[in-house]
Nucleic acid binder design. Structure first.
Length: 468
DNA sequence: TGCTTGTGTCATTTC
DNA sequence: GTGAAATGACACAAG
């Protein structure tokens, strides 16, 4: 527990502090190394090498989590060769941000909101998501540093949506996550103490990349797993919940706010503008995730003045484990991992070739998922028990009060009966006469009843002797 | 700023 | 022996 914090937090904080302010959206140097100013003609071989190296780097969880600034050292060119494993349809989200924004550098002079819209509506992930958060920051989603991030974001936006991580599916949003929630993946509250292997390693990523269908998916990294998650997102896992948001993209209101900039095909090397998507139809998990991302960025819907129902406007963010699963390219959903029976789960594992770290992660996810449900049930039971015990306590207290009143009443009755008995006793003595016709002294005699219901008049001293 | 609440996670025990 | 469930304890974020 504590060890978790010890080994995680310092790293995170280090990263955050060292990366600020441009860490998430591009370092300050990006102003000079702004992608727009960078010749697009970077040698492809070099770009590919860098691409590969970067992907390997970014599979390292820490880097993913902390969004190591990538922009200055490597800006994926619009011609990057990342091929989505699952087609996204005509609503491509992987177009280069630079491609999307560069032609519109003039708008960077525009007010922030306009710039923001221009950028993130293009499908750029981080800024769009960020735009959402800064436009309508959810109190729970924005840490105290939100205002700072806001400024950073604005600065970043003015820099022209520089950061291009479109081929780093799990990193693009992570940057946003740190805005919406600093926690996040390495939040102390969730780390497996040694049970989780290093989340990713280049080899793992490479191994897994062959099977993982969502490599190009970018995820909504708001603080999903923890802290009010239940109230903020439905129980169902991402494949389902994300489907709920797809229709957002066919929302007429939103479409009216969609930017006029071209949409770029998801195809690598494709700069072909696509028709403005009116209907986002994602069938694969990848699509779903992108859809979720869109809709969550689309929190920006608010900034776009598109009023959606809350449950659609705020997509459920992925939990840390889900993001980890994506990072490690686990080829099945967290829901499956957690909810499958043991046999099915083991069979599922045998059906896929998973690395050690992937297996460990899957088992961690399963354990945590089950424990999470167990904890929820436990707390629910606990509360129910408390409620039940409180009700029982009330009942018992009422009963006690009733008994106390009854006791007082009985005592009162007993006193009356005693009084009557004493009177009766005295009266009886007045009728008792000795052989001389003299009444017996009540001090010297007493009446005694035997078991056979006969009553005898006995002297007091004799009575005491008999009693002895 | 400190307290409370809700949640996720871990460690441990029990079934 | 193993997996799941239960639960206390802890950390964290948000109000």
């Amino acid at each position: 527990m504590c060890s978790t914090a010890n080994y995680v937090l310092p790293l995170r904080r280090t990263c955050e502090s060292s990366g600020a302010p441009g860490r998430r959206y591009g370092s300050a140097s990006m102003t000079s190394s702004f992608q727009g100013g960078r010749p697009h003609g970077i040698a492809e071989d070099m770009g590919q090498d860098m691409d590969l190296a970067w992907q390997e780097l970014m599979t390292i969880t820490d880097l993913q989590e902390f969004n190591v600034p990538a922009e200055s050292s490597y800006e994926p060119s619009p011609y990057n060769s990342v091929v989505p494993l699952a087609p996204i349809g005509d609503y491509s989200m992987t177009q280069s941000r630079s491609a999307a924004c560069e032609p519109n550098t003039a708008q960077y002079e525009e007010p922030y909101s306009e710039v923001r819209q221009a950028c993130h509506h293009l499908g750029s992930t981080a800024e769009a998501m960020f735009a959402l958060n800064v436009t309508h920051p959810s109190p729970r989603m924005l840490p105290s540093s939100a205002s700072t991030h806001h400024l950073e974001g604005k600065e970043q936006m003015k820099m022209g949506c520089i950061t291009n991580r479109t081929n780093m599916p799990w990193t693009t949003h992570r940057s946003n996550m740190h805005h919406s929630s600093v926690d996040d993946l390495e939040s102390d509250s969730g780390l497996s103490l040694g049970s989780s292997p290093p989340l990713t390693s280049p080899d793992d990523a490479q191994i897994a990349s062959t099977s993982y269908p969502n490599a190009d998916a970018r995820i909504t990294y708001s603080n999903g797993e923890s802290h009010g998650l239940q109230t903020r997102r439905p129980q169902s896992r991402f494949p389902v919940e994300h489907q709920l948001h797809h229709h957002l993209y066919s929302h007429p209101a939103q479409s009216s706010y969609l930017p006029s900039q071209p949409y770029f095909n998801h195809e690598p090397n494709s700069m072909t503008p696509l028709p403005k998507p009116q209907h986002y139809q994602g069938n694969t998990l990848n699509d779903q995730i992108v859809g979720a991302e869109l809709s969550s960025r689309g929190c920006s819907h608010q900034s776009m003045h598109v009023k959606q129902q809350d449950n659609h406007t705020h997509p459920a963010p992925l939990s840390r484990d889900e993001r980890r699963a994506l990072a490690l390219k686990i080829p099945f959903t967290a829901e499956k991992i957690i909810n499958l029976p043991v046999d099915d789960f083991n069979e599922l594992l045998t059906q896929h070739t998973l690395s050690e770290s992937q297996l460990a992660l899957v088992r961690d996810i399963r354990r945590r998922g089950k424990n999470k449900v167990a904890a929820q049930n436990c707390r629910k039971r606990k509360l129910e028990n408390i409620v039940h015990l409180e009700a029982e306590l009330d009942q018992l207290q009422a009963h006690q009060e009733q008994l106390a009143q009854q006791r007082i009443k009985f005592q009162h009755s007993l006193a009356i009966v005693k009084c009557h008995l004493t009177d009766l006793y005295s009266k009886v003595f007045t009728y008792l006469k000795d052989e001389h016709g003299q009444p017996y002294s009540i001090d010297e005699y007493c009446l005694q009843q035997t078991p056979d219901d006969k009553v005898y008049l006995v002297p007091q001293n004799m009575q005491g002797r008999q009693q002895r």
